[in-house]
Design a binder for these strands. Structure first.
Length: 573
RNA sequence: UGCGGGGUGGUCUAAGGGAAUGACGCCCGGCUUUGGACCGGGAAACUCCAGGUUCGAGUCCUGGCCCCGCAGCCA
């Protein structure tokens, strides 16, 4: 038995099967829609984050899988919080993620039509102008356990309502003086159905329509009708809108075939669980606060879960899409392990990042048997044997090197197989060295290591038995100094929103560690956007904002899996 | 508690009356000039609970329990 989908896209789906694809398969089989039309409906009042990426991957992915289309629609019905800057940022982020919309739409383009719809509702006796105060409306709405009571304005005549609504539009009333409400059911057990507000008066200019309007539709009114106008077939949103679906259906059923809205097919709303990711927050409000309170350096701070932040961090769009695919789509509230995201990032970078040598926390090593000034150019492959790419570069080797401080232990724990006093270790792509002396200053601090290298060990096993470890290094004279920004989880707690109150208390002091390190000189000839694996350390790339030809600044995108650190009981550092 | 949703290994997620899937994580082994990657193996869910229907139930029925959402003129 082959479904429509299988015919269209037998393999390599963008969206793995879920409860929504099942609905679509059924709808297509029943011939309910000529094609699948979805939409991604951001409000331009903030930046997109990884949670939005899940929704974007779903909506655009479905359009791709079913050869349908996905519109980008800005839900710009609240002039007080929205701006063109956000529109541009959102468009850039979606494109960067690799998706293309069929049409760029704006709820604000429908304002006139939406107004007509509202008038139609009034004519049908299905909406009325209410003149209660905001507080009164709230009181009259009742509570979860008590039914609401009708406003004394609920029975205004159609003529009166029409007149009032027209005057609202004309600007005869101050902000908040009146609202338009749907006449549904004040006793409904569904709070959303207790005569929801459709329009409010807001004397504020809109970033697109300027001062053409002083009444603006609310989400509950604009959203379903925008879907209908655009011919959306499957309107996908998150779980918190489940109750709003009743309004959605009520409006679409009342107005389909009227005011230029197609009678059929009509759109239906489906809800899925939004993404929660460990050790971060994904609510616009909280993200804004992090920026405003200066806990991070901006929307594109590499610690932020925003698309802009991830992009600057160095995460690729492919990794984000792969992540979205791995976590799936369902209706159960959930919280995704950070490791899932990191694994997707590493899997992507593993085959695209050439390996180079860099040292984060330098410890000097002097090779006593290598004449000073003697420099050898070693040829080092960019790729390990298991990555099917070719290429190599020359790496200068000399008598003074830097190695990682972590790779030497005077008193090694058991299982440590890097450099120890009197011990040997392999220098990656180079020779085996032995540590002869440990030099310390008066205070007892480690200053340098004096070692001898074995010239017979280049590309060959050493005499006297194999060495256990291989460590990375950089020639002291040739290494290029670089600022290394080591990023870690933003919050200390998996669910920063769990406790009550201030999120900032659980911010991790280790979310950013800056060190001054060295990187091999070959990187100076590379394109700046190249992502590397600094061997044994992690994936890095130049910070696109702060790095310059004069000043190298690297961001750690993600560390390597480190089973030694895990065994030692430390996290990444 | 009125209504709407949801509960499957540590974490996500499949399965739609017929031997509980995959991924991440974890453990063991192999390989390795990255303690990475890769390869092999393993532990891990009596599918929230209690009944019922059935030859057979994660799937159907009944009754509970727990979690999330809804009382903005935000979206």
């Amino acid at each position: 038995m082959s479904t429509e989908t299988e015919k269209i896209s037998p393999k390599g789906r963008h969206v793995s099967p879920n409860f929504i694809t099942e609905v679509i398969d059924g709808d297509l089989q029943q011939g309910r829609y000529p094609k699948v039309v979805t939409r991604f409906p951001p409000e331009p009042n903030g930046y997109l984050h990884i949670g939005h990426a899940k929704s974007i991957a779903l909506n655009f992915g479905l359009a791709l899988d079913y050869r349908g289309e996905c519109n980008l629609r800005f839900d710009d019905t609240n002039p007080e919080t929205e701006s063109r800057e956000y529109v541009e940022a959102i468009k850039r982020d979606i494109q960067w993620l690799g998706f293309r919309w069929a049409r760029e739409c704006y709820a604000s383009d429908y304002f006139e039509r939406l107004f007509e719809c509202a008038v139609q509702l009034i004519r049908d006796g299905a909406a009325y102008v209410d003149s209660l105060s905001e507080e009164e409306i709230s009181t009259y709405r009742g509570t979860i356990t008590e039914p609401g009571r009708p406003s004394l304005y609920r029975d205004r005549t159609v003529t009166e309502n029409l007149d009032l609504f027209a005057r609202m539009r004309k600007g005869e009333f101050p902000s908040g003086a009146h609202v338009l409400r749907a006449k549904i059911d004040l006793r409904s057990p569904n709070m959303k159905l207790r005569d929801p507000v459709l329009y409010r008066i807001v004397h504020a200019s809109h970033y697109r329509t300027g001062d053409a309007w002083c009444i603006y539709p609310l989400y509950d009114f604009a959203h379903p009708l925008s879907d209908a106008i655009e011919g959306v077939s499957h309107s996908i949103c998150t779980l918190e809108f489940e109750n709003n679906r009743a309004i959605y259906d009520w409006l679409v059923e009342h107005l389909r075939g009227k005011c230029g809205l197609p009678a059929s097919p009509r759109p239906y709303q489906y809800e899925f669980a939004r993404l929660n990711l460990d050790y971060t927050v994904l609510s616009k409000r909280k993200l804004i606060k992090l920026v405003e309170d200066g806990h991070v350096k901006g929307w594109d701070d590499p610690r932020m879960p925003t698309i802009a932040g991830l992009r600057r961090r160095g995460v690729t769009p492919e990794a984000i899409r792969e992540f979205a695919n791995r976590i799936g789509v369902a209706k159960a509230n959930s919280r995704v392990d950070l490791a899932t995201f990191e694994a997707a990032i590493r899997d992507d970078l593993n085959y695209r990042a050439p390996r180079v040598l860099a040292v984060l926390r330098p410890l000097k090593v002097v090779l006593t048997n290598l004449p000073e000034g003697n420099v050898e150019e070693l040829q080092a492959p960019y790729w390990p044997h298991d990555v099917p790419n070719e290429g190599s570069r020359a790496v200068p080797f000399s008598g003074e090197l830097y190695i990682e401080r972590d790779d030497f232990r005077e008193h090694p724990p058991k299982g440590f197989y890097r450099l120890i006093p009197g011990g040997r270790v392999r220098l990656r792509h180079a020779y085996v060295i032995r540590c002869d002396d440990v030099v310390k200053d008066a205070a007892g601090n480690l200053v340098e290591l004096r070692c001898t290298y074995d010239p017979a060990t280049l590309g060959r096993a050493p005499a006297g038995g194999p060495v256990k470890g291989t460590i990375h290094w950089v020639s002291a004279r040739h290494g290029v100094r670089a600022e290394m920004r080591l990023y870690d989880r933003l919050f200390r707690m998996a669910d920063p929103e769990a406790g009550d109150g201030d999120i900032s208390a659980s911010l991790s002091p280790e979310s950013l560690t800056v060190v001054e390190g060295y990187v091999e000189p070959s990187v100076l000839h590379d394109p700046p956007e190249l992502r590397y694996q600094f061997e044994r350390l992690g994936y890095f790339w130049r910070d696109p904002a702060d790095a310059s030809p004069k000043r190298l600044v690297f961001n750690r995108i993600v560390s390597l899996r480190d089973s030694w650190a895990k065994r030692e009981g430390r996290g990444r550092v």
